[in-house]
Amino acid sequence: MTFRETRELADFALQVRTDCIRMTNHGQSGHIGSMLSMTEIVTYLYNRVLHVSAENPRDPNRDRFLLSKGHAGACVYAALCRLGYFPEDWLMTYYRDDGKLMGHISHHVPGVEFSTGSLGHGLPVAAGMALAAKIRKEDHRVFCLMSDGDMNEGSTWEAIVFAAQQKLDHLVGILDYNRIQALGFSKDIAELEPLEDKLRAFGWSVVTIDGHSYDALEDAFAKLPFACDKPSLVICRTVKARGVPWLENTVKSHYGFIPDDKVADAIAGCKAFRDTFVKEAV
């Protein structure tokens, strides 16, 4: 990836992070850590992978993107807003009375494919969409972004079995694998490891990457599908609340918003994190 491309993506991600911090602060909502951990993934998907457009959000040939970890929907709202799907002044209505943007991701927002909020719903629906596309020989792809908590749900595993059985190789699961869920570290609650081995045993093709590296994201997504006749899973190792050093990798970040007196500091942290990309690229 060129320096300029990296810088553009890093700038977009900084904008998304800043929006998320401000939206959740203004709405006094939660899940800021979940949003910040998937910001590079969302940035890369919307800017480099998904065939979607703000001009024609319901284009039948669009790629489908489902956010199964709907609690982090503000991150997708921010990305969609910055891509022109809806006016900027909607952002600060997030979580507010008579607002345009509800806490968990909603299909009533332009550009959002599917509403979620209860975990374990995204992958089955994505598999159904991928099945319909396969039968009709349509070539769009279906992406489903999940979380550690999503992987706890039995319905996710039901869909994992189904997608392999049906050879849905245009279905792409993406895991924002930050290793923290609602009440603690995933390893202490419902350990998923060895996850690659499990998914391979279930008939998926799997790669694990650094979910904050654009080069790694580019490398992985360029190779889709990883194997003919198999659904693909991109396990993105991420850090919860990435960009705000004092909040990173904490269970607390799953809940709170960043209070007024720390917003500037948090955004400064995100700027510093953005600068690491530019430095690395140089």
Partner: peptide, 23 residues
């Protein structure tokens, strides 16, 4: 090609049906 038995997995049955219907 319009008949799918997802196995004994009713949550997935309903989710898949929803995805198929939304297309």
């Amino acid at each position: 090609d319009r008949y799918y038995n997802v196995g004994v997995a009713e949550q997935n049955m309903t989710g898949v049906a929803c995805g198929v219907a939304m297309e």
